[in-house]
Design a protein around this nucleic acid. Structure first.
Lengths: 203, 203
DNA sequence: CCTGTTCTGTACCGAGGGGTACGCTCGTGG
DNA sequence: CCACGAGCGTACCCCTCGGTACAGAACAGG
């Protein structure tokens, strides 16, 4: 089983799927799921609709693959942040990562997971649900990180990990909205400064 | 001048524009600008497309009127909050208002000004721009409220009103996203508790 | 060369989008 | 009671949507 056939049969693919996914990600990022038509997507990807369907399935599955790529790429700061030695450092890394990703050059203001499909209407229910799950998993992972911090004495014993995680994630959700409003990296970093000033101390 | 002609000529309107706007607001709220088709809207309003165009202009103008109604109604907590005696009370009232409006009964989770049209694509540029302006005005008004608080000694002299306003508004933007993720009123209020614990004190 | 297999390009599908033309209905004023 | 003027309903406009059928093009193996 699973013996990968090294010999490829049939006509070889005429484009790089990774590059195509990258371009699709940018379109979804800028315009959201509903706002991105297949014409927009395939135009940016440099392929035809037929090739896109053969390679990725359909628009919804393309979006899921883009979301996975987003998690591994632009949103990779999240995993890195959780590995910081202290809860405080994790929070700061998370928020500064959100700032950086929300203010990449080239009119990508905001965050794919926020503006991808916030409202739930008929056409985008799958994309919407996928993003809800994505965001909720992030909250939960941060909560577990804080729980460990409480156990290890890194956070005060009376700190509520779940509440704290939701608080931090509320900021992580709000920062991309500020970015969509036009705020730049320096201004958003000031918000993070403000957050860190009031971060709960151990003693 | 402007003696309003009390005598109305022509066939009278067969529906209540206020009621129709209210219903349109709910549709836009749930489904966003792009996700709300004219069929959805007029269906909920109980009128035909023709009546809607005659009464409100077109979809974009309808959205603007809905946005105005939203500001006067569900988002009215914002004006009330700014009139609170202290910056602290204003912040708490603002955030608790955001929580309440984001968790109204009947699957209206979230905030019209956030999920109405976050990404900017071809079709919804006007709605998107209107919401950007709406949100930025809110930030600015809160900043001015905080500036007054610093002048009057209500906030510490070293507090940065603009930074503080952006910080609070980041939370006000993030809370509706949490609501869209499924969090309830009690859970969101806990986030506000967390914010208020660390609010800067005068001395 | 031919066969098998996969990708590509064109041309097309039904459905639904926002928006409108036009005749009908309902009220007022003469 | 009749003309007027505005709201209403139907039926339709063109366009774009996501998705597909089908024939041709490019590779491997024989």
């Amino acid at each position: 089983m699973g013996g990968s056939r090294s010999t490829v049969i049939g006509r070889p693919r005429g484009f790089d799927t990774d590059e195509a996914l990258e371009r699709a990600m940018r379109v979804f990022w800028e315009q959201g799921y509903e706002g991105s038509s297949l014409t927009d997507l395939t135009g940016a990807m440099g392929i035809t609709k037929t090739s896109m369907y053969a390679a990725f399935g359909n628009k919804e599955q393309l979006f899921r693959k883009v979301l996975q790529r987003y998690a591994d790429g632009p949103a990779g700061y999240f995993d890195d942040a959780l590995e910081q030695p202290t809860a405080r450092a994790a929070t700061e890394a998370l928020l500064r990562g959100a700032v950086r990703t929300s203010t990449l050059p080239g009119k990508f203001a905001g965050c794919l997971t926020i503006q991808g499909a916030l409202p739930a209407c008929d056409g985008n229910r799958p994309a919407h649900d996928a993003l809800v799950q994505f965001r909720n998993e992030a909250v939960e992972r941060l909560e577990q990180r804080f729980r460990r911090a409480v156990d290890s004495g890194d956070l005060p014993g009376d700190a509520a990990p779940r509440r704290l995680a939701r608080y931090v994630m509320a900021l992580a959700f709000g920062i991309p909205v500020h970015a969509a409003n036009g705020l730049g990296r320096a201004e958003l970093d000031e918000i993070v400064d403000q957050v860190m000033i009031s971060w709960p101390r151990v003693s």
